[in-house]
Nucleic acid binder design. Structure first.
Lengths: 141, 141
DNA sequence: TCATTTATGCAACTAAATTGCATTTGAATT
DNA sequence: AATTCAAATGCAATTTAGTTGCATAAATGA
């Protein structure tokens, strides 16, 4: 994806085009894993931490990113599927967390099996798998 | 559950019997929802924050409680099913978070559907449903 | 009841994330 | 291109969740 594409993407999500947003967007598009705030901060040290946090928030609000709560006390963030927009997120994919490399991936090809709970109304489902990812599995006999 | 039962429960989980542990255990046994650290702290203000945190940790280590990472940046804790012990957790039940009352419940009668991902090794699964709980649903037409 | 181990309380600290405010920048309009 | 105004940024300070070190107190087992 090139600059003009990012620009378009931001505009269609009601977001102003700024250097920081372009760079953050670019980072996410080049990462196959969900990224923590720290990952982002290390690579984009030229921007203030607060600006990066606010960029994440605006992206989440407008449906560009989704937040994956982590069990180590901090969250990770990943690109949304195209269905997400300014009017809420519509996620259905599974997240995988590797206990060896620590990476969190979205598995867009795996959708979450529906669970019906009588008398409850279910709006969203989030399934996080924990184990050993494809790459790490190859490196251990 | 009475004092002697809590005492027994602690002993079988290799934990010393202390006032704080009894009170924390009692709190969890009387709550139908998962509790955040804040919930606990409010009700058991007589104990130091650090002691409460350490109580939670020891309970998690010994298989009495499990931790449910929350999407607002803090975790909740709930009693484990009996299968959990000193040698790891064996959870299979679904968690439900109500967007109206904010409560998180364990749904012990609903187990997580198995998802197979080729080339990946899956060790744990966590499914969190988001929506409106039974009680809140009744109070809205 | 004594000795040993473990738990507690306090203070200080770390790390994640947020808020307020002055300044700068984006983009729509003239 | 210059003007304008809302929105984005950077900085400092603050909040909140959770942790660590250490002296004291309490629980267990002999």
């Amino acid at each position: 994806m090139k600059f003009s594409d990012y620009k378009k993407l931001l505009k269609t999500h009601e977001l102003r085009v700024t250097d920081c947003r372009i760079d953050v967007l670019d980072k996410f598009h080049h990462s196959s894993y969900a990224m923590s705030f720290k990952d982002l901060e290390e690579d984009l040290a030229e921007y203030d931490r607060v600006t990066l946090y606010r960029t994440l928030h605006s992206f989440i609000d407008k449906g560009l990113l989704h937040r994956i709560p982590g069990d180590e006390g901090f969250a990770s963030y990943a690109l949304c599927p195209q269905e997400c927009g300014n009017h809420g997120h519509h996620h259905d994919h599974v997240h995988f967390k590797c206990k060896l490399c620590g990476h969190i991936e979205c598995l867009p090809d795996f959708s979450i099996p529906k669970v019906e709970v009588p008398e409850y109304e279910i709006n969203e489902q989030s399934l996080v798998l924990n184990g050993v990812c494809k790459i790490c599995k190859k490196s251990i006999p």
